[in-house]
Write a protein that binds this DNA or RNA. Structure first.
Lengths: 288, 288
DNA sequence: ACACGTTACGGCAACCGTAAGGATT
DNA sequence: AATCCTTACGGTTGCCGTAACGTGT
């Protein structure tokens, strides 16, 4: 069984005749006959009912579908190697609030074509490992994973995490509060797998264990709405709430003696050639 | 690009060496080298990074996945031809209330292995045309469709449709009501695409246009619950409500002068050999 | 020296096109 | 007679194993 045999088989099924199939494929008609015969021999099944029009055998009907997807995937596999597109992935927050303008500028200036995919942090990591994207802008990258050795990571930004409260909250408008007062608050969690937990436990020290994340809301957008509604407070990337802080729909409160930072990283395959689009994009992003 | 080349490539990726791959595949080691080289040549890309361990190139990472699915689908395609299983499909009602015991008996007596798939009527039709099932027991089969010529259909049962009402309904317990009174009732519709509409318009004649199906609930189970809850009345296959009628949780009411029947059919591919499991199953089902 | 991948080479099978052969309409 | 698929045949190519050859440890 091989792909050209399958192509001939499908051409016969589609055109209804061996001759038409041969013309469509640009090969001789006996070649088509041979392809189909070989296929039938190797599979030990009659595939085509020869008649005034040729149709797939009853048994072969399901096989036709499989054959089609085979050809299709083979084509996709080929394309996956030759796409000169730059495929950038970014975790939700980074993608939503930080990467987009940079990505757009880069495409403009370099005239490199590309695609930006925004997904959750773990999904982006998965896509990177699967080769579905070339560069990932992420909030958290597990360096401990042995798989990570195949990749190169670079700290791109150090973005502050800020404590936000809603306009109705008793801290709204205050500049500074004592960190341990946070133990009393409902802390809303956003997207999981973004390393926020780690940043908190490193930043808060002994207090960290006493904080309780009461709800995990899945996305920063939902968290913001939750905080606005008075459901609780939250720690989010400053860049994610820039507009709300300016508009006054959310309030930032600093915690005495505590500075939380998230290291945003750019990840690429190691061993990328200097000339690769992915490298260029990283350099560009680092400069800005 | 061909399948054995891909297999060699994957074996190298999985084992990390050409030699191990050759042993795994039971071919010579230069053959593996050649496979990979040919693949690389035909795709014009370097796929494997030769080193103390061999790993896929950055560009090839996505290709590995595609290659795997290709091999997998090729295998499935092969199996789809040689499965000697009898694959029976049945639309929801037929499958749930009528076919199951017959199918089980048939498997027992004939020692033929098989699988029963129950899905909506249109889905079953689709599966039959796609060759995913060999026999379909259906409530409605569109003979007008030109595709239907490739199939043979046989009327298996004529199952009465009965009007059911809930225990709280004013007709509960009555044997007979005037048909045109149905115009005042909320008629609940079940699974669509089962031809009930057609049966109704044929059976009711001029009244048919005045009946209004107020809700389409998707499945007979849901309809039964709806009728029990007093949401309305419905027309369902008698076999679907046998137990409820006996238990008294639903009531059957006859309509004066009207008999509704649904023709349940067995559909197979035409041109099936006499000895095929599908034919045998049909004969068996017809006898019982 | 050893393990490993590549290159070289030869026999065999596969492939494809041309040409001829049946079958059906 | 025309159309269509199959069979037959020959030149070319591809495939795979053995053996020899680099290379790095």
């Amino acid at each position: 069984m091989n792909l050209s045999q399958l192509k001939s088989f499908l051409a016969v099924v589609d055109t209804g005749s061996f001759g038409a199939a041969s013309r469509e494929l640009g090969i001789s008609q006996p070649a088509v006959s041979q392809h189909v015969r070989k296929l039938e021999q190797s599979l030990e099944v009659c595939l085509i009912e020869r008649g005034t029009v040729c149709v797939p055998t009853h048994r072969a009907v399901a096989f036709v579908r499989h054959a089609r997807t085979l050809i299709e995937i083979a084509e996709r596999a080929r394309l996956s190697l030759h796409s000169d597109e730059l495929r950038v992935g970014a975790s939700s927050n980074v993608g939503t609030y930080l990467i987009q303008p940079i990505f757009a500028q880069f495409m403009n200036e370099s005239e490199i074509k590309g695609k930006l995919t925004i997904a959750s942090n773990p999904e982006v990591a998965e896509k990177l490992q699967q080769g579905e994207i070339d560069v990932a802008a992420m909030e958290w990258w597990n360096e401990a994973d042995p798989e990570s050795r195949r990749f190169h990571n670079e700290i791109w930004r150090e973005e502050p995490l800020v404590l936000i409260v809603g306009p109705g909250h008793r801290w709204a408008g205050r500049r500074l509060v004592q960190a341990d007062l946070l133990e009393e608050e409902n802390l809303l969690g956003g997207e999981s797998g973004t390393g926020t937990g780690r940043v908190i436990s490193e930043g808060f020290g002994s207090i960290a264990g006493k904080l309780k994340v009461t709800q995990v809301l899945g996305s920063t957008e939902v968290v913001k709405e939750g905080v606005k509604a008075g459901l609780g407070v939250s720690l989010v990337l400053r860049s994610a709430v820039k507009e709300e802080l300016e508009a006054g729909s959310l309030y930032q409160v600093n915690l005495r003696g505590i500075k939380l930072k998230k290291r945003l990283q750019l990840i690429t395959s190691s061993n990328l050639p200097e000339t690769s689009c992915a490298r260029k994009f990283c350099e560009y992003a680092m400069k800005i």
